[in-house]
Write a protein that binds this DNA or RNA. Structure first.
Length: 497
RNA sequence: GGGCCGUUAGCUCAGCUGGUAGAGCAGGGGACUCUUAAUCCCAAGGUCACAGGUUCGAUCCCUGUACGGCCCA
């Protein structure tokens, strides 16, 4: 219950009390402030478009019904102007004593900013040239009890924008546009894959064993089964089971969960696309990735070339393709092919001025060097290919160098956006990789792959040669909307208490 | 992980290295029949993030904590 003196208090309590007393007055008049529907309404954008030719003082012959949120109000005594906004746009309502009786006009004036109403009447253009609905009738559709954000400045406080994203969407056109762009990119990706005969599948989020990426998992408990499950860190090992079963081309687009730090490019849950294509290798996947991202950029933004800070990222041009180790040597002066001992590599990194940390794990050092020396410079779409075996436990060895794998990562905007390889389908080699990982686990690498016997059994039944891909959808969304933080492109990002 | 910056009314922001805080919008009362960030008049609205410290006195100086932003790693 509210405190009796809420109306006397300052701040938000007073504003809420004011709206609640209006709500009570509306109910006292016998009006339902939360009716069930508003049939026959048209989108404001369509109404605007259809009536654009109207001249000043001219009216449409037929009445329209529009509905949305009141975003502005300009009183003028016996005339009231309001702005009504729905998803498609905004239109002015023009209510005057000439069309509504005094009581109805007062009821309309008494509505608050943010209230959701329906209005009916002919479309007209005012003397000042503003396309408007001349209100013959209106219906309160939802009474709001809290004030909306500032009508002119919008909502800027990032804490509030993320914690109460609905206010961000309500107040900031940019925010709505951004999430529509993101949705367009995702449906473009789906359409691309569907058109090429890929089957969209759904594999478990709750997995008895995690795998397919180097990350620490979330653990949860099933009460009835009385056992723990891991939230998936990747879909890889299940999608390969689908390939083994003969689905030949599969993809899954959904959330993965990684129990790691939060940063401008990491959210603990994030959206990942994984695709697997039988009888393809990583070069086929490179071509597919380029084409798919190009299509997504074009469909979501209208252009394959998008602004990125001060620069322009061109997904339309053919992407640069560089051998990983050579590119890294070129940029850092350190050749990881000659620094195969972790102490040696760490020293070389320190000598060259890079942060090496205290990790004793060679692949982590390599990854750290990549992150520091090369990744931030890869603004234009770039593919680095052929990665050391120890960084790639599920990738097939290259034919000419058994210590390297047919793996590539794609970068843009200084971020890794995709990871792909010719999948390892030799079950004995895969078993050997798990054994290597077991040693890494024992040596303290908590991101090493746990042994997965069930997956090995699946591989022993035979997997065709296969090209696989993982594409980070949130990072793609960042690139397509020119946002520097993943929190901007995830509707409800993870927050501290 | 480190550094820097921020947190003041519902929202957007001012506030002079110290004397108990101000605007616009929103909200309330009033005027107004073509406004559009409507305008005009009146009144109201504050745990200056939180906890300590210094001081006669702290929004302001110091320390710590929380949350957030940016940069570096």
């Amino acid at each position: 219950m509210r405190t009796p003196n809420a109306a006397d208090a300052g701040g938000i309590d007073r504003l809420i009390a004011e709206r609640r007393s209006k709500l009570a007055a509306i109910r006292a008049r016998g009006v339902d402030p939360f009716p069930t529907a508003y049939p026959g309404r048209e989108e404001i954008g369509a109404v605007r478009e259809a009536n654009e030719p109207l001249a000043a003082d001219e009216s449409s012959e037929e009445a329209v019904r529009v509905a949305g949120r009141i975003t502005g109000r300009r009183g003028q005594g016996k005339v009231v102007f309001m702005d009504l906004a729905d998803r498609s746009g905004k239109i002015q309502l023009w209510a005057s004593i000439d069309r509504l009786d005094e009581e109805r006009l007062a009821a309309l004036s008494d509505l608050d900013l943010g209230d959701i109403i329906g209005a009916e009447g002919p479309v007209t253009r005012t003397r000042r040239g503003e396309l408007s609905v001349a209100v013959d009738d209106f219906t309160l559709l939802s009474k709001t009890l809290r004030p909306p954000p500032d009508k002119h400045h919008g909502l800027k406080d990032p804490e509030l924008r993320y914690a109460r994203r609905y206010l961000d969407l309500m107040a900031n056109d940019d925010a709505r546009t951004l999430f529509i762009t993101r949705a367009k990119a995702i449906s473009a990706v789906r359409r691309y894959l569907d058109d090429r005969g890929f089957v969209e599948v759904e594999t478990p989020v709750l997995q008895p064993l995690y795998g397919g990426a180097a990350a620490r998992p979330f653990v949860t408990h099933h009460n009835t089964l009385d056992r723990n499950f891991y939230l998936r860190i990747a879909t890889e090992l299940y999608l390969k089971r689908c390939i083994i079963g003969g689905l030949e081309r599969v993809y899954e687009l959904g959330k993965d969960f990684r129990n790691e730090g939060v940063s401008f490019k990491h959210n603990p849950e994030f959206t990942m696309l994984e695709t697997y294509e039988a009888y393809a290798d990583y070069r086929d996947v490179m071509d597919m990735l380029e084409e798919m991202v190009r299509a997504a950029a074009a469909e979501a933004t209208g252009s394959a070339s998008v602004p990125w800070g001060e620069e322009e990222i061109d997904f339309g041009a053919r992407w640069k393709r560089l051998p990983f180790a050579e590119a890294l040597t070129e940029e850092s002066g350190i050749d990881i092919r000659e620094r195969t001992d972790e102490d040696d590599l760490r020293q070389a990194m320190r000598d060259a001025g890079y942060e090496a940390g205290d990790t004793t794990i060679w692949p982590k050092l390599v990854d750290s060097l990549l992150t520091q020396a090369l990744e931030p410079r890869l603004i234009q779409p770039t593919i680095l290919y052929d990665y050391p075996l120890s960084l790639s436990p599920f990738a097939k060895r290259t034919p000419d160098d058994p210590e390297m794998t047919e793996r590539f990562e794609a970068f843009a905007g200084g971020m890794e956006i995709a990871n792909a390889f010719t999948e390892l389908n030799d079950p004995d080699d895969q078993r050997a990789r798990f054994e290597m990982a077991a040693q890494e686990l024992a040596a303290g690498d908590d991101e090493a792959q746990p042994h997965d016997e069930d997956f090995l059994i699946a591989l022993e039944h035979g997997m065709p040669p296969t090209g696989g891909l993982g594409l980070g959808i949130d990072r793609l969304a960042m690139l397509l909307t020119n946002r520097a933080s993943i929190r901007e492109v995830v509707l409800f990002p993870a927050r501290r208490d």
